[in-house]
């Protein structure tokens, strides 16, 4: 199981939890599992979610591997100038 940190506004769609545990070996599996378990997260996942794994930010790479002890933080999809 991987612990995933959710930012504040996502928590209302995940039973108020700041951190959820999911069974996932990569970013895609993580997103799929989150969307299945917490359908309220679907609109934000559709708009765009980036992920930080052990401090490194991945904008959208689905198959980035995640190990059970990885530190995983969701972030809104990044924009820049």
């Amino acid at each position: 199981m991987v612990k995933v940190a959710l930012w504040g506004t996502l928590r209302q769609h995940a039973d108020g939890q700041a951190e959820v545990e999911v069974q996932a070996a990569n970013f895609k599996q993580l997103l799929d599992e989150l969307a299945t378990r917490y359908p309220g997260l679907k609109p934000q996942i559709k708009r765009g979610v980036s992920v930080a794994i052990d401090g490194k930010v991945y904008r959208e790479a689905w198959f980035t591997p995640i190990s059970p002890d990885s530190q995983v933080v969701l972030m809104p999809y990044m924009v820049g100038g």
């Binding site: 930012w7 504040g8 506004t9 209302q12 769609h13 700041a18 309220g40 609109p43 934000q44 809104p76």
Partner: peptide, 21 residues
């Protein structure tokens, strides 16, 4: 208005986010 905006606000408020620990 998106799903994360609390009910009862002006229709011009379309999105809300919260961060921190």
């Amino acid at each position: 208005t998106m799903e994360n905006v609390p009910a009862g606000m002006s229709a011009n408020v379309t999105y809300h986010s919260e961060f921190g620990h």
